[in-house]
Design a protein around this nucleic acid. Structure first.
Lengths: 112, 112
DNA sequence: TCAGGTACTCACCAAAAGGTAAGGATGGGA
DNA sequence: TCCCATCCTTACCTTTTGGTGAGTACCTGA
């Protein structure tokens, strides 16, 4: 069992926050403003309800996304980026740019 | 089984390249120049030989790191960043900075 | 009374990732 | 002859992560 070691660098800490199959996609989807649960489910293609909720809960507990419930029928829940989440997204932009710039090379060397 | 879908954004592609428990740490360790296998093993504390090799092989096949064998006894192998790897590391710097800036908050909200 | 739309929640299973421990190839030096 | 250091390689197991499919609660409007 891995002991809880302190992070060795900022990158290490950041990776812990955005780790997982869906978190980057979710952050990306929230980039342009608040989204309802059902909207995210459509935006993040391929994600299941369970995974979406799970990842959102994790991001929420990390104070990256904010969850707001509207007591209506049918229910409405909105997810948005917190200030911390916004700053994270800004820090992710160069990485997104890098991925976009080298998309062909990356695609070409995919394992599967 | 997940079908091989095209990446939905640059961030998605980048995440695929740096995914895994050790890759960010390895990239970090290579930041300041070539390193031998044994040196990396010490720099990336906690990593096992198997994992280190496995991750290095993946980064190599992605053209992020370069592997150079010196035919000596005892053997010597040096790993360094390729041009692509360098550019990736540049793109990761803001993320590292973000992690460093918010280290306290991140630590505080750790799951375990 | 009953289907509908929304946002979950749960139990269970499969796949991927990671960890442990041992062994192997090489040739120089004691 | 045997040990040493270095860089892997392999078999096996555990942990983590992700996926499936079903069910819940709420009120509305037909």
């Amino acid at each position: 069992m891995a002991a809880v070691l302190p992070y060795t660098c900022g990158l290490d800490a950041a990776a812990d926050v955005i780790g997982g199959k869906w978190k980057p996609r979710i952050l990306w989807a929230l980039h342009h403003g608040p989204r309802r649960f059902g909207e995210l489910r459509k935006d993040v293609t391929g994600v299941t309800e369970k995974m979406l909720i799970q990842q959102l809960r994790e991001l929420e507990s990390r104070n990256i996304v904010h969850r707001e419930v509207f007591h209506q029928v049918p229910p409405k829940v909105e997810y948005s980026l917190t200030k911390l989440g916004e700053s994270l997204n800004v820090a992710l932009m160069p990485l997104d740019q890098w991925g976009a710039d080298h998309l062909t090379e990356i695609e070409a060397s995919r394992p599967c």
